[in-house]
């Protein structure tokens, strides 16, 4: 083989390879071609083995041709490779496409009970004003539930709390969270700002607005200069936080044996905005809680001097707060645990 033969073979190789590359349908074919032409045992190497038989002067010439051929093939491979990969990518993307409008795979999420959540929301609001949470027993003694709250045995005010009694001497199921006031006063020195959430019981026929078991949140604040104006300010803040900053509120007289003076706290009707509707009994107001200045008898049972200390207590029903807030019309739903009801909350 002489220079011309070798050169011709290299040109033939170039022409064959370029044609094959141009016609290669996919990247696998290209990779095979690359190996076949440019690989260690490829055709180019095979041709160049003949170079050793050439005179030394001719070798660089063949080398130059061979490099040109290699360069041409490499760039053809790269060029065609890019084309083929791009086609292949497009095909893959097309093949992988899904109907993105189908619903996602659901992740199960439970919901939190509205009564307990209401108590948490109430606590979050009052915590901003320094109130701290306590708990007290549900099976209470008559003395703490009534007598120490200025409700002696056989007092007509007992009619306000129809009571469930139990088969343990002197005990009953607490009818309100107010006995917690006594327990907090006995355990702490003023300044006191306490919240007492928990379950309560009444001998009460069940209907849309009465339950034999329900929750209450008691509030208690006592110090040397705690006044009814503080009570009004805090409750007003509470109502605005819970029901909206534009809501008007008012105090009107109420009655509880353990507060004096006692008040009912009203917020403007959430349905009609105060103009009067069936939901508010046409009064324009909805009562959300009862409150008052702690009665001196109660302060003394709590171990506090009523001449020095004064303060207020309030008690509210978290279910009622939720009913007003979400338009729930039947109190029974709270203990029925129908998932269709519970799952409406978060």
């Amino acid at each position: 083989m002489d220079l011309a033969d070798l050169t011709r073979e290299l040109e033939t190789l170039r022409a064959d390879a370029l044609a094959a590359i141009a016609g290669a349908p996919d990247s696998a074919t290209l990779e095979a071609l690359e190996l076949d032409v440019l690989g260690k045992k490829g055709r180019l190497t095979t041709v160049l083995r003949g170079i050793g038989a050439l005179p030394p002067d001719d070798r660089p010439k063949v080398g130059a041709v061979a490099n040109a051929v290699r360069g041409a093939i490499e760039s053809a491979l790269a060029e065609r490779g890019a084309e083929v990969r791009s086609t292949e990518l497009a095909a893959r993307l097309a093949a992988e496409a899904v109907d993105v409008t189908t619903p996602g795979r659901p992740v199960r999420r439970g919901t939190l009970h509205p009564s307990i959540e209401a108590m948490r929301e109430i606590a979050e609001i009052f915590e901003q004003f320094g109130f701290v949470t306590y708990e007290s027993p549900e099976i209470e003694d008559d003395r703490t539930n009534f007598q120490m709250l200025n409700i002696p045995p056989d007092h007509p005010a007992r009619d306000l709390w129809d009571t469930l009694y139990v088969d343990v001497e002197g005990k009953l199921l607490r009818t309100h969270t107010s006995p917690g006031q006594i327990r907090v006063m006995q355990a702490e020195r003023p300044p006191i700002r306490a919240l007492l959430p928990g379950r309560c019981f009444r001998y009460e026929a069940v209907d849309a607005s009465h339950a034999s078991e329900f929750f209450q949140v008691e509030g208690l604040m006592i110090d040397e200069g705690t006044t009814m104006a503080d009570l009004k300010g805090l409750l007003d803040q509470f109502a605005k936080a819970m029901f909206g900053a534009d809501k008007r509120t008012r105090f009107r007289p109420g009655y509880y044996p353990f507060t004096e003076p006692s008040v009912a706290f009203d917020v403007e009707c959430l349905v009609c905005g105060g103009s009067g509707c069936p939901a508010c009994g046409r009064s324009g107001w909805m009562t959300i809680l009862g409150a008052g200045m702690v009665h001196p008898v109660v302060l003394q049972y709590g171990g506090l001097d009523p001449e020095r200390y004064q303060g207020f207590a309030f008690g509210m029903g978290p279910e009622r707060i939720k009913m007003l807030k979400h338009g729930i019309t039947d109190l029974r739903l709270f203990l029925e645990n129908d998932l269709r009801f519970l799952e409406q909350f978060r």
Partner: peptide, 10 residues
């Protein structure tokens, strides 16, 4: 009046 307490915090 509705005021916010200015007595000491617990």
């Amino acid at each position: 009046p509705a005021i916010l307490p200015h007595t000491p915090m617990p």
